[in-house]
Design a binder for these strands. Structure first.
Lengths: 155, 155
DNA sequence: TGTGAAAATCCTCACGT
DNA sequence: ACGTGAGGATTTTCACA
């Protein structure tokens, strides 16, 4: 059990912060019914514990011409740890790959890739993923629409 | 073409803001080589245009006991728009479902669900997704590890 | 943990270029 | 459209109760 011990107020704070990262401690204090100083101390503790990782601004992909979500299932040639690390570094270095999970089941990895259009994706697939030495094959699935996208972990 | 027209400085600003949403305009100004006022005007324009959606704090799922990512492919009974909307409302109202995409191919929807453990997921699946009137069947895939998770849209 | 206050920072805008 | 400058509000931060 290496999870931070949250009480009710911590949870409230996290819920608020996950919805709006830019908000004054005073406003949080009022919302959770505590003093600003108390909130400040709690937030600082949550930060140093690593519960609060960072605060980021969210950009609308469509409005910057990155409207296409593609999910790519990848199967590796071997399960050799070196090859895996190699592939994971590849993933890490490509900003189009927003998410990557090591999976159970038929496929080794699942990637969420965000690109401008199909041609854009084709480029990444042919010149990146499929040509990677550790990759055996892959299967791509295109999102027609993003129904929901949330960054808020339930607490 | 309904995408915002970004110049080089806008892109720099977005890159910075997507990495750190809490940062002063002055610091941004210095980083991009412009005046704070100019940055402020640009950011405001990006906000009103909807490019900058919101700023949020990110929480480490593991540290709050929500360490299990599950991907759930869902097939609908019919493609009746009403049933779809109904299901999408269901998705929207469940905070464990962080992402949901309408998909091309064999499955109608792909969901990313964040839960505490398998038992937790079983509950959602049996008492939520599978029992939903619009859902025909589903297939679940478990993430063994989160290799990469980024919220930054490439700009 | 809460109150209070001090100091620093930051946002915001008017003006001139 | 950009930069300078400055007012004023807001916020962080901490000492003390």
């Amino acid at each position: 059990m290496n999870s931070f011990n949250l009480d009710a107020i911590d949870r409230k704070i996290l819920r608020i912060l996950q919805d709006r990262g830019d908000i004054s401690h005073a406003a949080i204090a009022e919302a959770v019914g505590a003093s600003p100083a108390s909130c400040w101390r709690r937030i600082k503790a949550l930060e140093t514990a690593g519960v609060l990782v960072k605060t980021v601004s969210l950009v609308d992909p469509d409005l910057v011409g990155r409207g296409l979500n593609v999910f790519c299932q990848v199967r590796m040639k071997s399960h050799d740890p070196l090859a895996r690390r190699n592939f994971e570094r590849f993933v890490e270095s490509h900003e189009e790959v927003l998410e990557c999970y090591s999976m159970s089941g038929d496929w080794d990895y699942l990637l969420r890739v965000l690109v401008a259009d199909v041609a854009d994706y084709e480029r990444l697939l042919m010149r990146g993923i499929l040509t990677h030495e550790a990759v055996a094959n892959s299967s791509s699935h295109f999102a027609l629409k993003s129904v929901k996208y949330s960054t808020a972990v339930p607490v």
